Simulated assay, not measured.
Amino acid sequence: MSTVSYRDVVDWLISARHPVDNPEGWMTECCERMVEAGLPLWRVGVFIRTLHPEVFGRNFIWTRGVAGIQMGTVDFEIQTTPEFQASPLSIVFSDVVEVRGNPHGPEAERFPVLLDLRNEGATDYLALPLHFLDGTLHAMSVSTRQPGGFDPDHVAALRVIIEPLARIIEIISLRRTAEMLLDTYVGNSAGARILGGQIRRGHNDTMQAAIWLSDLRGFTALSDRLPAETVVEILNHYFDCQVAAIRGHGGEVLKFMGDGLLAVFPIDEYVGDAAHVCARVLEAARESRASVEALAFPVGDVVERFRFGVALHVGNILYGNIGGGNRLDFTCIGPAVNLAARLEKIAGRLGRTVVASEGFAKVCRHDWHELGEFPIAGFSKAQRVYGLREETPAVTA
């Protein structure tokens, strides 16, 4: 007989000794403690709604005897799918009630998930609402393979445990929400730094990085002749053409500025990977160029086509909190960023899609074509600018 009781599980849940940065490990330990206390759990699922522009919810599934936690996400369309509408969880969310089902009973015909559980040897299923303190509703499901299913004591114990369990899940969920929102609005690396405590003005670091600064050609005229809602939709599609390539090649988008985009690709000076990083930046630029060229947006009887320009540079940047009062921005500044901004304007004048500074061209070995020396406002010396030999300059007005 186990010396661990349900009360011990509750005491552990309210002990405040939970690693919020390792929710998978915490959930595994929690389920194992419940089993040790006498709950005949075979599978436990936690279903959390999220505050994310693309993800409606996340699920975490623990299965007895299986290493690790199975995790997944669902988008907002899940709510209208036949699978969800025929799920016990849809009733939990709509009616805020417990839903119990016997995989071998008549309710299995109503809920297909019970048929799946029956095929895996389950004998009982229970879905319970998880109430968060902010008023939002989430859910947890438990199933067992024990002959006869859960007895009344098991169900009573689950109802006692689920209240403190919900508090810990809410704390972990809030942490994840903060991480996701910071990742969405300031970028992954910046978000991690902010959560790590770099929240005061003046908290900054010097970092060597490849710098990407781009904008959409003809954006002012586009904004003048199209409705604002259409312009926003175009911008979203346009930025999609770049963000996937930037992130896919190790970059981080720091800022959208109207039609402009600022991204950095960190360089590990101790590893000496500048050439590798810059090669990936160039590949991201080529992918973005192809995506923007392929972008066709119908507006009435006209199909809008687009061009953009991107300037690539490499140098040291100051990376951290900048702002006034209690309104801060996590961004990067420095002469290297200023030079990238000036180069992007030169790209527009030359009708080029991709231009690079002399520093970038020297690090990233490629068949570059020297475009000439140009005076740069704010810089004492003219700067050599390079373009891709494969590109044909567009005619500029």
Rank of each mutant, 00 (worst) to 15 (best):
Ala156Tyr: 10
Arg280His: 09
Thr396Ile: 13
Asp124Asn: 02
Val35Gly: 05
Lys255Arg: 14
Arg176Ile: 13
Glu287Arg: 12
Arg352Ser: 11
Val292Ala: 04
Phe256Pro: 06
Glu54Phe: 02
Ser223Gly: 03
Thr136Cys: 04
Glu287Lys: 07
Asn102Ser: 13
Glu269Tyr: 08
Pro129Ser: 05
Ser15Thr: 08
Pro23Glu: 06
Ala157Arg: 02
Gly38Cys: 09
Phe306Tyr: 14
Asp153Leu: 04
Leu343Trp: 01
His154Tyr: 02
Gly197Cys: 12
Arg118Ser: 05
Gly250Leu: 06
Gly300Asp: 09
Phe379Glu: 08
Arg307Lys: 09
Val231Glu: 00
Glu269Gly: 00
Ser15Ala: 15
Thr123Leu: 04
Leu213Ser: 07
Phe150Gln: 00
Asp116Gly: 15
Phe60Gly: 03
Glu304Trp: 00
Gly218Met: 04
Glu54Cys: 02
Glu120Phe: 09
Glu107Asp: 13
Glu283Arg: 09
Pro298Gly: 06
Gly187Ser: 11
Glu120Asp: 13
Cys241His: 07
Asn102Gly: 05
Thr353Tyr: 14
Glu163Gly: 03
Met140Gln: 04
Ile346Val: 12
Gly258Gln: 05
His366Asp: 08
Gly135Gln: 03
Val142Arg: 01
Gly149Cys: 09
Ala275Ile: 01
Glu283Ser: 10
Thr206Met: 12
Gly378Glu: 10
Asn59Cys: 07
Lys255Cys: 02
His366Ile: 06
Arg384Ala: 12
Tyr6Asn: 13
Cys332Met: 12
Pro53His: 03
Glu287His: 10
Val97Phe: 00
Ala37Pro: 00
Cys364Leu: 05
Ser141Cys: 04
Leu388Met: 14
Gly351Val: 14
Glu344Thr: 05
Val66Gly: 01
Cys31Asp: 02
Phe93His: 07
Leu295Lys: 12
Val232Phe: 01
Gln79Leu: 15
Ala275Gln: 14
Val92Pro: 03
Ile199Asp: 06
Arg145Ser: 07
Phe360Thr: 07
Leu137Ser: 06
Trp62Gly: 10
Gly25Ala: 09
Ala166Glu: 13
Arg307Met: 07
Leu262Ile: 06
Leu222Asn: 01
His154Arg: 04
Ala341Glu: 03
Phe56Gly: 01
Ile376Glu: 06
Cys332Tyr: 09
Tyr185Phe: 15
Arg305Leu: 07
Val160Asn: 05
Leu371Val: 05
Pro19Val: 06
